[in-house]
């Protein structure tokens, strides 16, 4: 039983670390944070096994946590890593599946789910977006953008600290798009403290068409980048 408790603790520490790692715009889990988490876990384990076994227990625990996370990732639908929102991290992909490159955000969500990472699809309506992220402090959002760059180019904005250029997010058929949602939420004081937006440059938006090959490559790159941020340990262990 104490192993189960310890694993729960390990999960929570690792997931807290994911959030900690995003402080100050550093999205990637830092080496220092990892070491801190593992040290905490090792000491916890050592408290149960005796101080003489600290080194051995740390190695054992590291392997145990990694194995457990992989197992949970594959077999346990309630896995906290499958549901980043349980740790205050929300991933949202916006777009329209029937309008060519505008589907990019939704296809990133699909790819992330294939990697075992939970993410939400969204039509991009501003008011619903604000409702969607209210109360969540860490949000990653993916949408198609039009900036005049080459098709499929992936861009990233730290929207919590910098205003968005409204015209870039022009693909919504609703009265407000993503840029409107971000700026309205900022005005109302309802913006998440960490909001990272990935924009994939789109060019073709004809109804009933598929995204271009360049945008499909951008979708793949974006999904890998987000997966690297959310679950770097799992990618390293070959779960992708």
């Amino acid at each position: 039983m104490w192993i189960a408790d310890l694993l729960r603790f390990a999960d929570s520490q690792l997931l807290s670390a994911l959030s900690l790692g995003q402080e100050g715009g550093q999205t990637v889990l830092t080496h220092g944070t990892r070491s801190l988490v593992l040290a905490t876990l090792s000491f916890s384990f050592a408290a149960c096994c005796g101080t003489k076994m600290i080194r051995r227990s740390a190695r054992f625990l590291k392997a145990l946590v990694a194995t457990t996370l992989v197992w949970r990732m594959r077999f346990n639908p309630q896995s906290v890593l499958r549901n980043p929102q349980s740790n205050g991290l929300l991933i949202i992909g916006c777009g329209n599946p029937d309008r060519g490159d505008d589907a990019a955000g939704l296809l990133v969500v699909q790819r992330l789910r294939e990697l075992g990472i939970e993410a939400q699809e969204h039509g991009g309506d501003a008011l619903a977006l604000i409702e969607c992220w209210r109360g969540t402090q860490n949000v990653v959002l993916i949408d198609t953008v039009v900036t005049g760059s080459r098709s499929g180019k992936v861009m990233m904005w730290d929207a919590a600290t910098h205003p968005l250029v409204g015209d870039s997010f022009c693909c919504s058929t609703h009265a407000f798009g993503v840029a409107g949602a971000v700026e309205l939420a900022r005005t109302l004081g309802w913006l998440p403290s960490h909001l990272r937006i990935y924009g994939i440059e789109g060019k073709r938006f004809a109804m009933g068409t598929q995204p271009s090959p360049a945008v499909l490559r951008g979708i793949q790159r974006t999904a890998q980048e987000i997966a690297r941020i959310v679950a770097p340990r799992l990618l390293r262990l070959g779960c992708s």
Partner: peptide, 14 residues
């Protein structure tokens, strides 16, 4: 637009 309006009338929009 509503965004501009929200700066001066946040309570209405909230």
């Amino acid at each position: 637009d509503a965004l501009e309006m929200a700066r001066d009338h946040p309570t209405l929009v909230q």
